[in-house]
Nucleic acid binder design. Sequence first.
DNA 1: ACGCCCTCCTGTTGGC
DNA 2: TGCCAACAGGAGGGCG
Length: 277
Amino acid sequence: MPELPEVETIRTGLAPCLIGRQIQALEIRTPKLRWPIPEETLRRHTLHQTIRTLERRGKYLLAACGPGHMLIHLGMSGRLFLLPPDACAERHDHVIWTLDDRTRFCLHDPRRFGALLWIEGEWQGHPLLQELGPEPLEEAFDGDHLYVWSRNRRVAIKTLLMNGRVVVGVGNIYATEALFLAGVHPARPAHWLTRACCGALAEAIRQVLRAAIRQGGTTLRDYRQSDGRPGYFALELQAYGRTGAPCHRCATPIASLRLGQRSAFFCPRCQPLEESN
DNA sequence: ACGCCCTCCTGTTGGC
DNA sequence: TGCCAACAGGAGGGCG
């Protein structure tokens, strides 16, 4: 499940292969992922045009090409990679681009929660992007921002962290890990968090995301870097998926619960429901 | 406005 | 061994 570190890893891996290249052919083998793929629009605007930039906003990738941008979201199981020269398309290879240096790259997504859309002109005002919160690794995101957002909100803090209007790019894995690092129970109602606690949590989010980017992301099952290697942050997970295993800090077994149809993992001792001091 | 729940989809896993 | 239900979840959208 690609979150910010996975999408950023894919972006940096793929950018040198794509930027400055012209799109020579576009093969759309599946008409619809999360939404219908606008095949004719993409053909009209991107064929024989040069890919100028590859940016990331939250978990979205944006490739400037022709008079607008291709928007790509990897959903749950999406991958983007260069196809080996002689490779044939396989099951779940939904879109294949051929570039002017004969390389081909592929959008592969078994669960089809991903998206490929066309944005005319600049992407900032697009409905999917304009309401998004700050990038967690930029200055606009800090403890004050989290503190303001958490006032009068009764939702579990983990649910708040996964809300893209609050902060982008933080999904189940990194919300779980940041809460562990900050010593905050995932079900703690957001408005219980103190200012200091929000500061620690914001810093934990930034720390976890930076560490995960350094490791090339987290591979649980599907995710691969654009060169095919897994992401090695899985080896550093402290809580996610570790139900019953000893906490690396205090050896208490990691517990799990469901929050808003999502699994949450935490150490009952290191992450008390109420702030202890 | 907030918060809850449903939905899309397929591969994997676990129980009987 | 085989079948089937449960589960995984990003995030838009609907509803109360």
